[in-house]
Amino acid sequence: MSAGEKASKSKVKAPKQKTNWKIYIKRYWQLYALLLLPMVYLLIFKYIPMKYILIAFKKYSIVKKVGEMPWANNHGMQYFIQAFSNNDFKNALRNTVVLNVLDLLIGFPIPIIFALILNELPFKKFKKTVQTIAYMPHFLSWVIIYGLAIQLFTPTNGLINMFIQRLGGESVPFLNDPVKWVGTYIFLGVWQSFGWNSIVYLAAIAGISPELYEAASVDGANRFEKMWHITLPGIRGTIVTLLVMALGNILGSNFDRPFALQNNLVMKYAEVISTFVYKHGIKGLQFSLTTAVGLFQSVVGVFFLLFANWLARRLGERGIW
């Protein structure tokens, strides 16, 4: 495939290329100059700040520079030990993994299915309208979505529960019961993002050559067979790339979604690493402890990413590098 081709090409060219890079730079210097800008951005905002990882191994002080802060106890590992003996952290770790895995299991296939269905729609205008409506929630902030959820799901005043009660049912604690809350959390996440996430798949589908479909029609394939044998394999590369990235994020969590949606009654399932870090780090000023937690999170994330990428390559796909 294309990856294989490229690899073999570069292998053949490799001995010559050593001297060729100067020619390339000369020929495309404008492009390289343009590339410098994002590189500088990455360097300044992503790489230089990494020196503050040291805070995880030191006793943080607001008035000292990183280098001047004293080392933490236990050879600098004090805060890692503290984190792993903290029940709240273990809870947050478990919740992060569980919520992210559920998000992945439920939230990952839905945009693909949606893109496939949308692709089968013959009316262009209808298709565009549906697509626009579906990705609109992506632009709502989580605070607003929580406001909507409150209006819809609260036990006494929520629209849906009022409806259920009118029909003679008991109101459902969508937001107050920990297990039901997890359902609401996943549902809202899917609702917010499936339209947006399907855009990439729609773009990939648009890139599949129409000749394949025509040939399949001539061979007598029906719609479903075309979907299964042409569309899905056609976007497999995209799916795998996005899956690898999603797996790399399995320990990461965005902050606003759990923070906006959680409440005191569901905290045992709703506290995730990002909100734990916020509570103990920013509110509680335990910067060393939370830097340690953040570092742990990132390192595990890197391992997941490497693993997923390796898996993708084993499955014959390109992976992300």
Binding site: D88, N176, N264, L265, M267, K279, H280, K283, G284, L285, Q286
Partner: peptide, 20 residues
């Protein structure tokens, strides 16, 4: 030190979950 916020939100959890 540093426990004020973590403990007071935990305290609210104790109260709220026990009441319901």
């Amino acid at each position: 030190e540093g426990m004020g916020e973590a403990l007071s939100s935990k305290r609210d959890e104790v109260y709220d979950t026990s009441v319901v």
